[in-house]
């Protein structure tokens, strides 16, 4: 393919200055604003942020599956050096489900209710490898076995409603793994599961990374999950990245007030229930963001300088906070 191939630097996913807007009756609304994000080979990278911060939309752009009305304003996305944006639909379709797989939030609704699970799991192979349905079904049984589903041979012929929630999510993961993709995008894959099943699914994802070297983009609301699974994390707020860095750094030394707020509001990770402090206020709608730092209207530390676009402050190697006061805050902590 004669695509602008950037010199391959070992990054599986490299998003640079990506902005996405929805065309609405009130005009254009930017829901993803100049985000840059990368994932190295075999890395598990978390994206965390409140509902509506743009996590799903950003990941759909990688798949070339933006919903109707959404448009990439600028930026680039490279998968192992291959540019993904501004490509014909056929090119993006060839990548989807082959080199990049999506593991969605609600596995039951993400599975076709009228198709046998085995066929759904094997389908990417029929689409991308041109193998027959019989072979695909055999492969599907192996895949279901590899995600530790019991009785995969019988289960392959069953329908999604006959599976438990955890089994459905395992089936989705098996489907994602079928083509051995470079990148798995997991969009809140454990939100619908109870805690024990959630832990099993996280273990499974970690094993997949360890055995196949698969890179994983893990989208979540849950800091606890980030702490147990991810190597690095990006914190998103209202369409922008406000802090990024290795997980230990972010947890031990949160340098953006929003990240701190998230940590203070999460009992499992930080302190006890008595210290629980929800962030006051609500995430602003994309068209009602404050000027300058978009967190400033909810921030306890906000001052006049926060009306400027926040600078990228390197707290430590690989740990960046987009906040004028990042270093002051660190002293206080």
């Amino acid at each position: 393919m004669s695509q602008p191939k950037q010199p391959f630097d070992g990054l599986t996913l490299d998003i640079k200055h990506l902005s996405i807007a929805f065309q609405t009756r009130q005009g254009s609304v930017t829901v993803v604003d100049d985000i840059s994000l990368n994932i190295g080979k075999g890395e598990i990278v978390g994206v965390i942020g409140e509902s509506g911060s743009g996590k799903t939309i950003a990941s759909l752009a990688v798949l070339g599956m933006l919903p109707r009305g959404a448009r990439v304003l600028e930026g680039t996305v490279h998968l192992s050096g291959d540019s993904l944006l501004d490509q014909p639909e056929s090119y993006q379709r060839a990548i989807r489900g082959d080199r990049v797989a999506l593991i969605p939030q609600d596995a039951l609704r993400a599975l076709n209710p009228t198709l046998q699970v085995g066929l759904q799991v094997g389908e990417p192979l029929t689409l991308h490898r041109g193998i027959s349905w019989t072979t695909a079904r055999k492969k599907a049984v192996e895949l279901l076995r590899s995600v530790e589903l019991r009785d995969p041979e019988q289960r392959a012929d069953e329908y999604p409603h006959q599976f438990s929630g955890g089994m459905q999510q395992r089936a989705m993961i098996a489907m994602g793994l079928s083509t051995e993709p470079e990148l798995l995008i997991a969009d809140e894959p454990t939100t619908a599961l109870d805690v024990t099943v959630q832990a099993q699914v996280l273990d499974l994802l970690r094993n997949i990374r360890d055995t196949h070297g698969t890179s994983i983009l893990f989208i979540t609301h849950d800091l606890g999950v980030v702490a147990t699974l991810c190597d690095r994390v990006y914190v998103m707020y209202s369409g922008a990245i406000v802090e990024e860095g290795p997980v230990e750094q972010i947890f031990s030394n949160p340098s953006h007030p929003y990240t701190r707020g998230l940590l203070d509001a999460t009992p499992r990770v930080h302190g006890t229930l008595t210290g629980l402090k929800p962030i006051p206020g609500q995430i602003p709608l994309p068209d009602a963001r404050p000027v300058g730092c978009r967190f400033s209207d909810r921030c306890a530390f906000a001052g006049a300088e926060c009306r400027q676009t926040p600078p990228a402050v390197t707290v430590q190697e690989g740990h960046v906070a987009y906040c004028v006061k990042a270093l002051e805050l660190e002293l206080e902590a």
Binding site: R93, R96, L102, E123
Partner: peptide
């Protein structure tokens, strides 16, 4: 508009 149709698209189905 259902999630499983999105899954089908995400698989790369035409």
């Amino acid at each position: 508009n259902s999630a499983y149709i999105r899954t089908a698209h995400a698989k790369g189905a035409p």
